[in-house]
Design a protein around this nucleic acid. Structure first.
Length: 422
DNA sequence: TCTGGGGTCCTAGGACCC
DNA sequence: TCTGGGGTCCTAGGACCC
């Protein structure tokens, strides 16, 4: 059995820990620039205010109900998340942190699951003041379903264990396809078109048909609803594949100079994130765009990628690359509303570093000399390590009438010292 | 007037290789 | 005139999640 532990209204609950006087008052948390609603307490949800609603559209109704509105405080939420996960980790054999406020837990081998989940729920509530819901099911997707059942029991901490065919079917009968984890707006629209409305109907669909219509994702979903586990518990976190920093602006930015300083600050934040994850990058993407909500204004969006010869994680190189990329895509005459930088195809500190010599090496002596210099810089930059060498002769080729250089052959020496000894 | 930020996975199709 | 078979890698774009 797999459990899904999910904090109730996490950001709002975090704020309440430090403002216990707001325990029964409606609370909403706003995004960057106080633009829209990104978290709501139970009471605000009850007012019918949707997730992501622009603040200016719902401000009136929030005021009427004397809601307390917070700007987001992500360092607080991150810290509370860390505490919560630490408490949980001490109580369970295996877990996967799924998001800032959710964890999957492996309950296999646990004799009395009900006792344990109640203990977890109470422990986190009394130690941290965060109310959580725990759902337990045969697969991750069913654990998600169980969690929704638990949440419907009330606004306080709650648990639900989903076991037995009829109980599962009943729970699924009460959910729309849109409520199922993994089904978003587009898929639910298409499913509705096929006459599939409830979770139970989806469970009864032929998985092969699902695969044809909705790719393997759809097939897995149906299998998971039938208790066949397709999504395993990943207790070891894979390293990140991309890291980005992006923001919308309160008011549009028109000048390149202003945008440049914004992008430079994102580049430095990107560097911080890379370094804290022990990662480097060769690929950096910069994007800018006008305000997509201003339907009547001219729109412009663009992005570009800079690929560096060597992996970097330092501010200077990142800022240089990002501002250079910005100049490629910046166009005058637009008011920009959002910009972002992203590093992708990340390398870990342990990954091989490629160091390219661009000069040709006409004689053996010169080749040897340049290789030694390259090794020397490698050592200075990355410390000692193992080295493999690839030599590429560049033979010009033509494609689509354009000259195009690609390696003609590659030779690799495994044992560098021996090569040099010769 | 004011509309978030940060991720992941999958597919199709093209280019290229032997 | 007929025109193989088996791959890999890359990219853009879509969809989803919290």
């Amino acid at each position: 059995m797999i459990g899904l532990l999910d904090a109730n209204n996490f950001y709002a609950s975090c704020e309440r820990v430090f403002r216990p006087d707001l325990m029964h008052q409606p609370i909403a948390i706003l995004s960057n620039n106080d633009g829209c609603i990104i978290a709501r307490s139970h009471e605000v949800k009850a007012l019918g205010i949707p997730m992501g609603a622009p603040y200016f559209q719902v401000k009136k109704i929030l005021d009427q109900h004397r809601a307390v509105v917070f700007s987001s405080n992500f360092s607080l939420y991150g810290d509370m998340s860390c505490r919560m996960m630490t408490l949980l980790d001490a109580l369970v054999p295996r877990m996967e942190i799924y998001s800032i406020d959710e964890s999957f837990v492996d309950f296999s081998g646990i004799k009395d699951i009900s006792k344990l989940v109640h203990h977890i729920k109470n422990h986190i509530w009394y130690s941290l003041g965060i109310p959580i819901s725990i759902g337990v099911g045969e697969t991750k997707t069913l654990a998600k379903v169980a969690n929704q059942v638990a949440k419907r029991k009330g606004k306080g901490p709650s648990v639900h264990i989903l076991k037995g065919e009829s109980a599962i079917d009943e729970a699924l009968q009460n959910l729309t396809v849109r409520d199922i984890w993994g089904i978003g707006r587009r898929m639910s629209e298409r499913l509705l078109g096929f006459g599939i409305y409830t979770g139970l109907q989806l469970k009864q669909v032929d998985p092969r048909w699902m695969r044809r219509q909705f790719t393997v994702m759809g097939e897995r979903l149906v299998q998971e609803l039938n208790g066949i586990s397709c999504l395993s518990l990943e207790d070891v976190r894979d390293p990140k594949k991309s890291i980005q920093v992006s923001r919308s602006f309160r008011s549009p930015i028109r000048e390149l100079e202003d945008l440049r300083s914004v992008v430079a600050s994102y580049a430095m934040r990107l560097g911080e994130k890379l370094r804290s994850d022990g990662l480097r990058t060769k690929n950096i993407m910069v994007h800018i765009r006008t305000n997509i909500f201003q339907k009547n204004s001219p729109q412009y969006r663009n992005h570009t990628v800079v690929t560096l010869p060597n992996p970097v994680e330092d501010d200077i190189n990142l800022v240089k690359a990002c501002t250079r990329a910005l100049e490629d895509i910046f166009k005058e005459g637009f008011g920009y509303h959002k910009a972002g930088v992203m590093a992708f195809d990340l390398l870990s500190q342990e990954d091989n570093v490629q160091f390219d010599l661009f000069s040709s090496l006409p004689t053996e002596d010169q080749g040897r000399k340049e290789l030694f210099q390259a090794l020397d810089s490698l050592n200075k930059r990355y410390g000692s390590g193992t080295v493999s060498l690839a030599a590429c002769g560049n033979k010009p080729r033509w494609r689509d009438g354009k000259k195009n250089v690609s390696p003609a052959y590659t030779t690799r020496w495994k044992d560098l010292p021996k090569v040099f000894a010769k």
